[in-house]
Nucleic acid binder design. Structure first.
Lengths: 342, 342
DNA sequence: TTGAAAGCGCTAACAT
DNA sequence: ATGTTAGCGCTTTCAA
């Protein structure tokens, strides 16, 4: 730790006095290359050092009516997807001396609005968030002039930058892979249709089957909350079918866990009795027996991209808005192995 | 969203004028039950509503030289342990209108110090953090007067409140359980000895064996980073032993995943060929085949407790310091099943 | 290039 | 019980 002897109470005034200049000059020196002669520049810098002066961020904030705080709001930080995104964001923002304020919305519009208001009240410089509502037309006004980037989902009725993944294609690729491995009866564990990603991934399932000229059997689609229990129930419903699927695709990482739980509870063998492809490559995916084939989202890059987008807009508010769509990657492991031992 | 038409520029002055009172009175009304007559009180409140006035937090911060921001610094938010703790913290702090600033230290002292300084510069009201250094005597001065709570680990040389778990007893209980299930050769996958929890859990292993009158075989202890790869290597070292263990205990959740990976790579059966008890009850523990026996930490409560402790100190800085130690719980699942099918 | 001075919007003495 | 007023520490016109 610095040799700062107790909370610094050194102000710009004292630095100015000590250096024999005005506070304005000190401020100019510290706020980057303004028009200050090298002579004074050095004198100020030395005094700053000598006095161990740290500008008071609070005063700066008030004066500039702006902070170096970015608000990050997601549905649930306990979902590893978001912590990975957060990491990407932090790595980018830290370089530019921004700090991150975090909050959970729990997919609850009231909570979400509350936190957005709180962010605003804190004077955040910008916001990165995961929309959980179906319509944001009323927010356009609220977010006017407040740089905002949506991640994971695009907010309907709101003109902001966004970073999402190609959900539709993700599932198509997964289906093609299953077909190639010999699976033809493919179940789909979907999220609730009010969610952006759930909708897209379901669409991917439909398109994927069309690609392969396989008729859609609505019975093979089971919906649920994006949660472990939601996945477990959906999987159970699938397995209770008179003619259950031989392979299953999940639309969300927590649902994957629930699906696995249901499969294990019936002591079914993966992939012999049922092949599984999960969404998101979580840390545990490789530690399962058998290791899990997954659609891997570029979580860290989603975060980095979102933060970069925000930084750009902070610098130039009039930039055209961008919807960036990143590609996912199918990571093939043993849970979708060749269908041969039926 | 509120019907706030564009960023509010309504100040306390305008409210005062409109209501026909002084700014001081408005301030008094808004900052809780001060001495203001019911008459004026209502008049002010109405005007506030009518004008949709929101106090400027930035001005408030400067004037009070304090914010409603709490800094939360952990080694790695991608570890689910910390997000669960964070959730507990947020649930408590949100009620009191505090917001949470987050940062990762990556077990890196420089990063940790940097973020602590950043927190300070932001004028945080308090700090909750996971110490990753071995000596904090130099920080005592820095944190003077800045309410601080340590979680998960106690910082050596620093007098602050802390919330940890009973690591020693946790491992003892796990060992007793393994013995009861018929396992006598128990390996231990430990963290690096500079970490508070690693040290305590290792001690628990030693004491646990003593409890059972089992001699300590140093070969059965393998150290590594608190990471998946660290756990994998340690497990491999254990399995490469001439006389490998029949059961293994891990000291950290990520290491558990690595250990499982190593076991699966050798196609060994759990628990028949090797029983496993992990540390931390992560979401995936129940989705494994077989489900994993774990030492469950009260993660959410750790967070709630830490936040409550901080709140108490915020209200009363002169309270005696507390080291709160919470109990863990052994959750028995199939991975530590009866040893019978050797 | 530098300094003087006016606030940013609020709260807390102090005065009434 | 209420109003007046002096800042909190900084940045940024404006003037020199």
């Amino acid at each position: 730790m610095k040799n700062s002897s107790s909370p610094d109470k050194v102000t710009i005034k004292e630095v100015a006095q000590q250096a024999g200049v005005s506070t304005a000059t000190v401020s100019r020196v510290l706020s980057g290359a303004d028009e200050v002669s090298g002579d004074l520049q050095n004198r100020v810098l030395e005094t700053v050092q000598a006095l161990n002066y740290h500008p008071n961020q609070l005063a700066r904030n008030l004066r500039k009516q702006a902070t170096n705080i970015i608000g990050f709001l997601v549905t649930d930080f306990q979902n590893p997807f978001f912590t990975s995104v957060m990491r990407g964001i932090q790595d980018v923002l830290q370089e530019k001396a921004y700090v991150l304020l975090t909050a959970n919305s729990d997919e609850n519009p009231d909570q979400e609005n509350l936190h957005l208001e709180t962010f605003r009240a804190q004077g955040v410089a910008g916001i990165i968030f995961t929309p959980s509502q179906t319509d944001y037309s009323l927010h356009q006004n609220f977010l006017q002039g407040l740089p905002t980037v949506a991640v994971d989902r695009r907010p309907l009725g709101l003109t902001v930058d966004s970073v999402t993944v190609d959900n539709i294609n993700s599932i198509r690729v997964a289906i093609r892979h299953l077909i190639e491995m010999g699976y033809h009866r493919i179940g789909f564990i979907a999220g609730l249709p009010q969610t952006f990603t759930a909708l897209e991934r379901l669409r991917g399932y439909q398109v994927g089957l069309e690609d392969e000229r396989i008729g859609l059997d609505r019975n093979l689609i089971k919906e649920g909350f994006y949660s472990q229990e939601g996945g477990r129930q959906a999987m159970n419903n699938l397995l209770d079918l008179p003619e259950p699927p031989t392979a299953v695709l999940t639309a969300n990482n927590l649902m994957t866990l629930g699906a696995l739980q249901a499969i294990h509870e019936r002591f079914m063998k993966i992939p012999d009795e049922i092949a599984v492809i999960g969404f998101d490559d979580m840390v545990w995916a490789a530690s399962l027996q058998p290791p899990l084939t997954v659609v891997a989202q570029p979580t860290y890059d989603i975060g980095r991209t979102a933060a970069s987008l925000l930084l750009e807009r902070l610098n130039n508010p009039d930039l055209p808005f961008q919807d960036i769509v990143l590609e996912t990657k199918l990571i093939v492991r043993a849970s979708s192995g060749e269908k041969n031992c039926v």
